[in-house]
């Protein structure tokens, strides 16, 4: 009957839609990241290095002062201390500043990991420009070592006026082997 070929045609079309949607679910990841980069949706600041020249020659330094706060998080205090050297700074948007985070490895083993930044309020994340940051690369802390981790940054003067306080948080995640992370028993 003629509806048989019609059915096959419809089925093919629908399967195509299915596949497209399956791929779409994966495409959502880069899409989300792009949207987040543009809008600062999730407070995940870009890990890209900004050109220092664009800020050192900046003449548009705003007279408005704002507070920037530094906080940190790491999962195990007994193994590693990781904290900012100062909690708060009063800064002018458009100017480059620097601060330090200090990490102390309290164990007898080498700790490897990376600090992941997050900014609150989320909208501020796209105005926070990091010129030099330890979060760009993996960090290795030797046993007992105390490491000073520098951060050079500027806040874009285009930051909306109503934002008076910006908080920058670093969560330090230790690098763990995948095989070590989970086996099929679900043990860590």
């Amino acid at each position: 009957m003629n509806y048989k070929s019609l059915n096959i045609k419809t089925t093919k079309k629908l399967i195509f839609v299915c596949f497209t949607m399956f791929l779409f679910s994966f495409a959502l990841i880069p899409l989300y990241n792009i949207i987040c980069d543009v809008t600062g949706l999730n407070g995940n600041t870009s890990n890209l290095k900004e050109k220092i020249e664009s800020y050192s020659e900046n003449k548009n330094i705003s007279s408005e002062k704002l507070n920037i706060q530094f906080i940190s998080h790491q999962s195990n205090d007994k193994k590693l201390s990781f904290k900012p050297s100062e909690f708060e700074m009063s800064i002018s948007p458009g100017k480059v500043y620097s601060t330090l985070y200090i990490a102390t490895n309290k164990t007898g083993e080498t700790i490897i990991g990376q600090a992941v930044p997050s900014v609150s309020p989320n909208e501020a994340s796209k105005y926070l420009k990091k010129i030099e940051c330890f979060c760009f690369e993996e960090q290795t802390f030797k046993p007992g070592e105390i490491v000073k981790l520098p951060l050079y940054f500027a806040i874009d003067e285009k930051l909306p006026n109503r934002i008076k306080t910006v908080t920058l948080s670093y969560s330090f995640f230790e690098k763990i082997n995948v095989s070590k992370k989970t086996n099929f028993k679900g043990e860590k």
Binding site: N42, G43, N44, I71, V116, S118, V119, S120, P121, T167, S169, S171, F173
Partner: peptide
């Protein structure tokens, strides 16, 4: 508000 690992909320 949700507490999310690696991110801060305020």
């Amino acid at each position: 508000k949700d507490a999310i690992p690696g991110f801060i909320n305020e």
